[in-house]
Design a protein around this nucleic acid. Structure first.
Lengths: 212, 212
DNA sequence: TAGATTGTTAATCGATTAACAATC
DNA sequence: TAGATTGTTAATCGATTAACAATC
């Protein structure tokens, strides 16, 4: 078995990808770990360690080829394939995700939108029709769905999670404010906005105290 | 100076707060670190270490009083005060935040919404009128604003950040997909949705490989 | 009192940084 | 070749876990 790469490292990879994308846009051809470290405000050592978890992408005396490294990180993050997403919960947050066109450039394509609200029947967002929840299982059977985004009230989240997991879904992007219970082999990525806001709040209070 | 508490610890506090809130709702009066550790799937040791960064909230032989601990963590996270928020960028994501009523229960109150789009002039979300960007400085001068949420395209983010920082804002909740440059003393909390999605994507690919 | 469980110190583990030989 | 910079090993730092004396 391959050595396990820590989530701390994985979490940093999208940021490298973003910075390399900007360099690429600016026509920069090569970059050293040291120069990148200055821009990103991390240590050069960390950059080299992180990248070498996945392979040697650089060249001694030269640094890293921006285009090549950008593409390699893209592959590591699975951006070289298409991921079909359905969004369950077509409220503002669900619609915000459905409207976020830039995801598609990275291969994340929203192919379905679901809601419980009958008033939404027949409506669509960016050409994607909003379906009712009783159509969920049929849709999952008829379409290749890789990721389910849960943008619904937490009261419904457990039930819906059970349904999609039963239907064979192995990846959930969870915006509901609770911890999902899923069987082994199902990946959950949480986005807990209120946790993020509380962390910000802590840091505000801390900062104020430091002023005094 | 007080000992610095790591962000790793801070990040876990909202989750404790959430679990304690649920226990409270369920009428549970006291809980031991061990029992909580089983529910939360962390070690009891970590719970005790985390809490003791802020003080001794428990009692030997008894455990923790749920109500008391819940309130104390609330205070640590600054939830015992009101935080006024303005949201800049009244697209779906901005509106989603403005509509998220539960934030208000924790003291986070949206008092303003701003957008560049003239078509939005006069519209309002949940009773909060959408203002145009040229009204920003006046609004900040006339109102106590604690947090600015940036839910706008990254092209505008740097400019707007400069403006609000100049106006004295010390906390930014950043949803724009770039790293903000802010002076010392300004706190930034990032929510990079596409980074989160990429992390999920990595874990999907990894899981698939492990199956083979 | 005896039992339970904290608060806290000590041990371990993992992640980050530093250093440098390998090499382009 | 000389200089630059990687890949990688070693050292350090910090975070997590274990252990246990203090104490309710």
């Amino acid at each position: 078995m391959e050595k396990q790469i820590s989530q701390a490292v994985i979490k940093r990879m999208p940021r490298y990808y973003r910075y390399l994308g900007e360099l690429l846009d600016n026509g920069v051809e090569r970059i050293s770990s040291n120069e990148l470290s200055i821009r990103m405000k991390v240590t050069a050592s960390q950059i080299r360690q992180d990248l070498n978890n996945f392979g040697g992408f650089g060249q001694q005396g030269y640094g890293y080829n921006v285009q090549y490294l950008y593409e390699e990180i893209g592959k590591i993050l699975g951006l070289d394939r298409q991921h079909n997403i359905i969004i369950i919960g077509a409220g503002n947050l669900g619609q915000a995700l459905a409207n976020y066109v830039k995801f598609e450039k990275r291969g994340f394509v929203t192919i379905g939108l679901f809601d419980v609200n009958p008033a939404m029947r027949g409506l669509s967002v960016r050409g994607i029709p909003i379906k009712m929840m009783d159509e969920l299982e049929d849709f999952l059977a008829d379409n290749k769905v890789d990721i389910v985004a849960l943008t619904l009230p937490k009261e419904m989240a457990l039930d819906v999670t059970d349904r999609v997991v039963k239907a064979g879904i192995r990846a959930i992007w969870n915006f509901a404010h609770l911890d999902l219970e899923v069987p082994e082999g199902v990946v959950v990525q949480n986005v807990h906005l209120s946790d993020s806001l509380m962390q910000l709040s802590y840091n505000i209070v801390k900062h104020e105290m430091e002023q005094e």
